[in-house]
Design a protein around this nucleic acid. Structure first.
Length: 371
DNA sequence: AATTCGTGGTC
DNA sequence: TGACCAAGAAT
């Protein structure tokens, strides 16, 4: 018997939590179905992402790709465009790859064996547990940040939850809570409690349906849990980007590498600025050596800040005119009209540049046509 | 095991 | 206002 559960009346806990869940659960789009494809899509979008952010993406994504087969048959470009702005873009590519595997190897039916489903791209221990329990009623724990917070308080688990090892404790402790109930309900009830009552700071213990079971509350240390190591401050990178136009009035865009940060997304040509005050020179040299394009860099027209988890870009945006371009073709470069560019997925920082360029060109158009 | 991967909202 | 955080996975 697990020592953490010594004083826990699991049956009563289940009754109280599930009763509360039925009365208080939010009406979320992905709770209207147990279709494994839709559950899967929602779970991938919800990784490290707030419910309010996901909802519009969830609707648009399923409008574009209503079934697993239709997603599998879609072009990756389309999938990335549907994910544009949601972040962690490898989620989209992995999901796309994974549903193709499902069509290829499982006849288009989402596999309900843990081993098979877990082997799919982008499906980790949380997503496997969530989809298998919610769509297939399998008694698998779905251990996310909410659930670790709830259980760390409930059972006074003081291990650092940012450490991979700590996860094992939760995997040991949670399965008994999934016995003799609907796993879909229990897992979602635990997450819902974390989401709308058992907040990271100032948990609403007075509204908590399972307060009487909570050991952290008993000790008055609910605010101190869970224990998490602090992460270091992100580094700042000074960047410069250029809105480079050719004689046809088209703009140069670049597709980022297939792996790494913002993989495969499109952007304005840009480079890191290592010496302050050398921005124009650095851009000119970058275009010449990297793309074999001779250009004249004009004025700075915009500043954009892009904050990542582990990195900050401070981007200075310049205008530029191309003088000469060698015939050498770079697969990842494209001269596009602004309308053409909107078919491609951009990271938020470059969406801001695109939006500003559009605004300026439209106001210039307006001036011209009104004369 | 420790890093790398986005973005937007909150206090 | 800046640190913190969110239904994590891959490497």
């Amino acid at each position: 018997m697990n020592d953490y559960l010594r004083h826990m009346d699991i049956t009563s806990f289940q009754r109280d939590l599930l009763h509360w869940y039925e009365e208080n659960k939010r009406d979320l789009p992905w709770r209207k179905t147990q279709d494994p494809y839709r559950v899967w899509v929602s779970e991938v979008m919800l990784q490290q992402t707030k419910v309010d952010t996901v909802i519009p993406y969830y609707h648009r994504f399923l409008e574009s790709f209503p079934t697993l087969k239709e997603l599998a048959e879609a072009r990756e470009e389309e999938v990335m465009k549907a994910w544009e702005g949601l972040g962690y873009y490898s989620r989209a590519r992995h999901l796309h790859q994974a549903v193709k595997e499902v069509v290829e190897n499982y006849g288009g039916e989402v596999p309900h064996e843990k081993k098979a489903f877990s082997s799919l791209k982008g499906v980790g221990p949380y997503t496997a547990g969530a989809v298998l329990s919610i769509a297939f009623e399998q008694p698998e724990p779905a251990i996310d940040g909410n659930v670790m917070r709830v259980f760390s308080r409930l059972l006074l688990i003081t291990e650092d939850i940012t450490k991979a090892k700590t996860r094992k404790i939760f995997e040991e402790v949670i399965p008994p809570f999934l016995e003799e109930v609907l796993p879909s309900e229990m897992n979602q009830a635990l997450m819902e409690l974390g989401a709308i009552v058992c907040f990271p700071t100032s948990p609403h213990c007075l509204l908590c349906p399972v307060e009487r079971y909570c050991m952290a509350r008993e000790e008055g240390v609910q605010e101190e849990l869970p224990v998490k190591a602090k992460k270091r401050a992100p580094k700042v990178k000074k960047m410069a980007a250029v809105i480079l136009k050719n004689e046809e009035g088209k703009t140069l865009f670049h597709q980022r590498p297939d792996d790494g940060l913002l993989a495969t997304l499109w952007e304005y040509p840009n480079t890191e600025i290592k010496e302050a005050g050398q921005t124009k020179e650095t851009l000119t040299e970058f275009l010449s050596s990297e793309y074999e394009i001779e250009a004249i860099i004009g004025e700075k027209v915009q500043e954009v800040k892009h904050v990542f988890t582990h990195l900050i870009w401070e981007i200075e945006v310049y205008e530029g005119i191309v003088k000469r371009q060698k015939t050498c073709q770079n697969e990842r470069l494209s001269w596009l009209t602004l309308r053409e560019a909107t078919q491609y997925a951009f990271p938020v920082s470059h969406q801001k540049i695109l939006k500003e360029q559009k605004r300026k060109e439209e106001s210039a158009d307006g001036l011209r046509t009104s004369k």
